[in-house]
Design a protein around this nucleic acid. Structure first.
Length: 268
DNA sequence: ATGGTGGTAGGACCA
């Protein structure tokens, strides 16, 4: 018995770099963290092979949009919550790459994204990334009109600012941190979306992705490219946002760490 | 050091 705590919704985003390889880690992490919604990126699994049974046994309903070999996104939602109004592509920018999954969970609108990597500045893939982000901007502007409580999360493959990069001067003209990419991200901020991580005090050199090579994680040579963007209404209800570095240190890890956020809810 | 590692493939790709 005690004073009832306000209801809270805990949300996380994690690029797992193959759900089939990382499923045991996802299940372990879910058992250790009270998360209501988990967005996954780079699932690299077709819908036919998506591990719905294992996730259902863990208490989660799965929404997924996958393809063979590359890309793939999913939303794991605690079964009691339910989902509605599912969208699997940016309208008028659907090229078959499975990078987008939106759903309404309670009164929260959640967009889970795997933004194109862009390969290198000046390449066709880089151009595609910028076009993709431009289309995303128009789409999210419309979503914000419809849904006051909008959370946009995922692997953005762009670091917002100098403190999000271990060597900003080295990265300033490279993919993941080039000025046009940051400008595209700033355009999303200009819609009123807030970088939830920066609503709170954080440790210096907080990153979400570390290259597999050259001992980058051990040396903390990382970038913060996994983000949670909150609409104005939702930003006011955000109680916490942090990165859980622990799974990046596990054996055979994803190269990304989960980003977590907690929101106070009026009711669910 | 144009390297380094990892996933999906069962070749070169993608990151």
């Amino acid at each position: 018995m005690g004073i009832a705590t306000p209801p809270r919704l805990q949300v996380a985003s994690w690029n797992v770099n193959s759900l089939r390889v990382r499923l045991p880690q996802v299940l372990t992490w879910l058992s250790q963290n009270t998360v209501d919604v988990l967005g996954l990126q780079e699932t690299k699994v077709t819908d036919e092979l998506f591990p719905i049974a294992e996730l259902r046994d863990a208490g989660y309903e799965a929404l997924y949009s996958g393809q063979a070999g590359y890309n793939g996104v999913a939303l794991l939602v605690r079964e009691s919550l339910g989902t509605d109004d599912i969208v699997k592509a940016i309208p008028e920018f659907d090229h078959g790459q499975r990078r987008v999954l939106l759903a309404t969970v309670g009164d929260l609108r959640i967009a889970n994204l795997y933004v194109p990597n862009g390969e290198a500045v000046g390449t066709d893939k880089y151009r595609y990334k910028l076009d993709w982000l431009d289309a995303l901007h128009g789409f999210l502007r419309a979503e914000l009109q419809r849904y006051p409580r909008l959370l946009v999360m995922g692997d953005f493959n762009v670091a917002p600012a100098d403190p999000d990069v271990y060597a900003p001067d080295l990265w300033r003209d490279r993919v993941l941190f080039s000025a046009p990419e940051r400008q595209a991200l700033n355009a999303l901020f200009d819609l009123g979306l807030a970088d939830a991580f920066r609503l709170f005090d954080q440790s210096p050199a907080s990153y979400s992705w570390w290259d597999y090579r050259a001992g980058a994680f051990r040396r903390n040579l990382g970038l913060r490219i996994d983000l949670m963007l909150a609409s104005p209404r939702l930003a006011r209800e955000c109680l916490e946002c942090r990165i859980d570095r622990i799974p990046r240190g596990w054996e055979r890890p994803s190269d990304h760490a989960p980003v977590m956020a907690t929101f106070e809810r009026d009711e669910l």
